[in-house]
Structure formats: structure tokens, C-alpha cells
Simulated assay, not measured.
Amino acid sequence: MLENMSDKYTITKYLNGQFQNVEDVIVNEFPLTIFVNDVEFATMVCTPTHFEEMVVGFLASEGVIRFYSDIHSMNIDESRGYAYVMLKAETTTNQQYYSKRFIGSCCGKSRQFYFHNDSRTAKTSTAKTTITASKAIALMNEMQNNSQVFQETGGVHNAALCNSEEVIVSRTDIGRHNALDKLFGYSILNRVPVRDKIIVFSGRISSEVLLKAAKIGVGIVLSKSAPTDLAIKLAKDLNITAVGFIRGNSFNVYSCPERIVE
């Protein structure tokens, strides 16, 4: 599958005062347009792997489906870049509905801005899972070190679904949201319980990423990068432990620190 994720190009490199022609590995970028019940729903620019997982995870995160059984049929035409999904029941696929902002109360603690579908699908975590500090660092290192396409290109995000001891599955994509959708789709297709699981993530924890984690249903998000202030507020509201800047032997815990133990 790695051959679908990158290609080799001859480039001009400047080094130590000289230009030279060298071979470089460049990550692939691929547009996939999703049709739901014959209506164009979204175009995702992605790394061309694990299409079925990504489409299922994306539709679940958008509230279009809850279970894989909600889908009557799915046909992915990779040559044309189309995914055709027919649902067993009628659903609202109006783009305005899915992009409309909704102001609502989250757990009664504060008022945050959501997309309308976010207010319906983001879950407040009830996870009792804990993880040791050393294992949090180890899982981040394992995910990054095992991503060959990241090692070769530096142009992708990595995300992994883990338990408190090991990586269960990892996915890679040029889009950080896509990588999470692939994990979500994997858990749906393989009926993996997620409430007690952990997401390890290479990218920034934005509010959108935090909401993706809430929709998946995990209680802990471990990131190599920084959070935003809205992501921290949402993490506190949704009872999710957000950990950032996992680098070397240190990290920062921004919310619900009781899940990180010595």
C-alpha cells in the first residue's frame, strides 16, 4: 500500500553553496468525491489509501450514519476518484445543514460554537481509562517511528488507535482529519469498542480535531503538537484528557489530568 502513498521525483537541492539534482520522495495527494444517495456530499483531498475506512468514518463523524449497517451499498471508483454511497434510509444531505453553526450548551458548563451536526454527534466521555506517563511517550514514539511514509516524506499526519499498553492500528494521511476518519471507519468496520481507547496524534489539537475524538468516543488524546484554546475548553466540557507537546521525555496535560498516572 505504500506505493500508493508516495512517488519519487528528481528535484534540485541547494546544499553547502551548491545546487545538485537528487531523488526525493513526495507524498501523493488525491481528491475523492463522495456521493450520498446520488447527491454530491463532499470532496476530500487525501492520501489514496483505506478509502472505505475514511468514507465510513467521515459519514459517521458527520452524523449521516451511526453504524455500518446503515449503508445499503458502497462503490469506490478509484480511477475516477468517486465514492458512491447508498443508505438504507433517507437522510438529510443538505450542505447548508451540515455547515450551519449552532450555539449550544455543552454539559451545562459553557457555551461553545459547534456545527449543527457536532452538537448531535460529539459525545461526553465517560471513559475510566488511565495511562502512565512513560507509556504515553512510548506510544507516540512507536507511532511516529513505524510510519515509513512520514520518515520518507515528512508530509503526512499520523494517527493511532491504542489501548493503554499498545498501538492497535495506525493510519496516515496528508489531512489530519482524514487520518482520524480512517481510524473511526476502522473501528466501525471491525466493531472495535472505542470508549476505553486512546488516540495518539501527530498534529495540532484544534477544536475540530477534539470534536472528531469526541465523535469517535475516546477519553484521551495524545498529541505531538499544541492545542488551541477552544480545543482545551471543549476538552474540559466533554471530559476528554488532552495532552500536547509529547516530545522527548516531557508533555503538557491541558484537561482532565486524572487519567495520566505515574
Rank of each mutant, 00 (worst) to 15 (best):
F30G: 05
N190F: 09
T12W: 01
Y9G: 07
R191Y: 13
I168C: 08
S69N: 11
A235M: 10
T126A: 10
A133E: 05
T121H: 01
D24S: 11
I240V: 11
L32D: 11
K236V: 07
D38L: 12
Q112T: 06
Q96M: 13
S187M: 13
G104R: 00
P31H: 12
L180F: 02
F51G: 00
E52P: 10
V169C: 04
S223W: 05
T121Y: 01
Y186S: 05
F67K: 13
E29I: 14
T33A: 15
N158S: 07
E152K: 09
T124P: 05
C256V: 14
Q144P: 01
Y82V: 10
L222C: 05
F251G: 08
F245T: 05
F35C: 10
E29S: 15
I131P: 09
G63S: 01
I205E: 07
A83Y: 15
N37C: 12
D196S: 14
T47V: 06
R176F: 10
S147R: 01
N239K: 15
L211A: 03
K123Y: 02
V209H: 05
G63H: 00
F19M: 04
K88G: 09
V200C: 09
E208D: 13
N94Y: 07
L222F: 05
Y68E: 07
N28L: 09
K13G: 05
Y98I: 08
L230M: 03
R101D: 01
P48I: 12
I246R: 07
K123M: 06
K224C: 12
G219T: 05
E165H: 13
A122V: 02
R171M: 03
N146S: 13
A42G: 05
L15M: 12
Q20Y: 15
L139P: 07
I174F: 00
N145H: 10
G248E: 12
T153D: 02
